[in-house]
Write a protein that binds this DNA or RNA. Structure first.
Lengths: 252, 252
DNA sequence: AGAAAAATGTTCGTTTTTGTGCGTTTTCGA
DNA sequence: TCGAAAACGCACAAAAACGAACATTTTTCT
């Protein structure tokens, strides 16, 4: 029995039993433990199993781990922005949360709100908010974008058009000093534009790393946004623009 | 993260029994109580259990117990059914995967297919398949059902209507001996019905625990299904029905 | 067939885990 | 409230598992 034939069977056994032991597999395949160790090491490197002393187990709930890792990755600024943003959202209203790590931070802060109807095109946000039993979560359809768990495309836009939101929280990839809000993904821009149309009050949540960056697609102007929540002071030009446009700026 | 083969099983036992004792586990694993204490201390440090004198209990915040229990129920059969089912699905085609732990097992077996377009209303399946870069995943919209990660309601049905599928894999809650396919949730029945309409070939994946059970809502008849993949022989009556209707039955 | 490559087995020093002994803390009944 | 029994955690030694390096076998390609 060659190595290529062993690996799939190891996975299958692991799925069936929930765990595998080095010795058990060695006996099952009639090879030395060392060979099994090599197999397990490779499977673990591929992320198909999780190595433990004496054997291996199934990767424990991929979703939860992704979530907790992400949470650890959360920079202080994003948590602060999320917290500040959540304070502007009352109980018992309808909210849209867009794609983005910053909006995920907002979702985490909404865990103790009540009576919310949250619509999102971010599968991670859906997972986070599913922990709060006082929130109804609606997920838009769309193509799953692996990189960030976003749901994009025509389906997403279609779904959003069927709602009216009291509040919407959007993120962005870049923010020009003249008040233009930009994004890397053209498809997502369509979604963001629709959200702005359908919402009573729009919040932009973006940390200072976005200031003065460049991105190809235009979402909107700062004038289309009601509140901008960030962590550091804006450039003079941008502050002036917001003032004229009536956009309230908040520092977390 | 777990460094011991024992830990996942301890969690599993804790979920099933609600609590675990040091002595009980020591006997179960044939190790000394001290070793178990170490395990429990570490699990408690990770927040996965709550330590009490003489053993440990589930942390009060733990949710979704029903779902994880159900997922572990009959696990071996589900993996086998998933594997058998995946063999009927070729590369480069469009597939719908419905809600259900058995269909999740199918998704896990599709990880090495190529060129698939998979549409699903199950957020867990979306997460599983996002690991396969050769599969395009589309998620239907809908209300997020906390209990099992399903997306249900009108939005889901609407989305599904926009597609035509080469193959669809559906699950069910119960299966009557006269060939009627049943489900607990009326909303989900609507979704399943739509899927059957939109699909070239329909697979029903259900393990033997569903045989002869009862559920209130009718999805369809076995005659509407092209293949039925299960783990144990059907009742004589049901087998006869399938034969007449031309439904092929496969045992994993 | 013969050489190169891949996979497997073997050996050995290192790391991790487990068992044991013992003093301390908690629980529970009188 | 007090005292015994059980449970606990710590420290150290023994045992098991580990990985790296090298020898040997098997497979593959020319």
């Amino acid at each position: 029995m060659s190595q290529t034939l062993r690996k799939p069977e190891i996975i299958q056994i692991a799925r069936r039993e929930g765990k595998v032991t080095v010795d058990g597999l060695a006996e099952h395949f009639s090879v030395t433990p060392q060979t099994i160790r090599r197999d397990l090491t490779e499977l673990a490197d591929d992320g198909r199993l999780e190595r433990v002393h004496g054997g291996a187990v199934l990767p424990s709930t991929t979703t939860n781990i992704g979530y907790s890792e992400r949470r650890e990755l959360n920079q202080a600024a994003k948590v602060d922005i999320g917290s500040a943003c959540a304070k502007f959202i009352p109980n018992d209203c309808s909210v849209f949360l867009n794609i983005g790590t910053t909006t995920e931070a907002v979702a985490a802060e909404l865990l103790h709100h009540e009576g919310l109807l949250v619509v999102t095109n971010n599968i991670n946000i859906a997972m986070i908010l599913s922990q709060n039993h006082n929130v109804e979560v609606i997920v838009t359809g769309g193509h799953l974008r692996r990189s960030d768990g976003g749901l994009v495309g025509d389906l997403a836009t279609q779904t959003i058009r069927q709602f009216r939101f009291d509040y919407a929280v959007i993120g962005c990839s870049a923010l020009r000093h003249d008040g233009e809000i930009l994004d890397f993904d053209v498809q997502e821009v369509g979604v963001s534009k629709t959200i702005i149309q359908q919402s009573q009050e729009v919040f932009l949540a973006a940390d200072s790393s976005k200031f003065g960056r460049k991105a190809p697609a235009r979402i909107a102007s700062m004038a289309d946004v009601d509140r901008f929540i960030t962590d550091r002071p804006l450039s003079a030009q941008c502050r002036l623009f917001c003032e004229k446009a009536g956009t309230k700026v908040h520092y977390a």
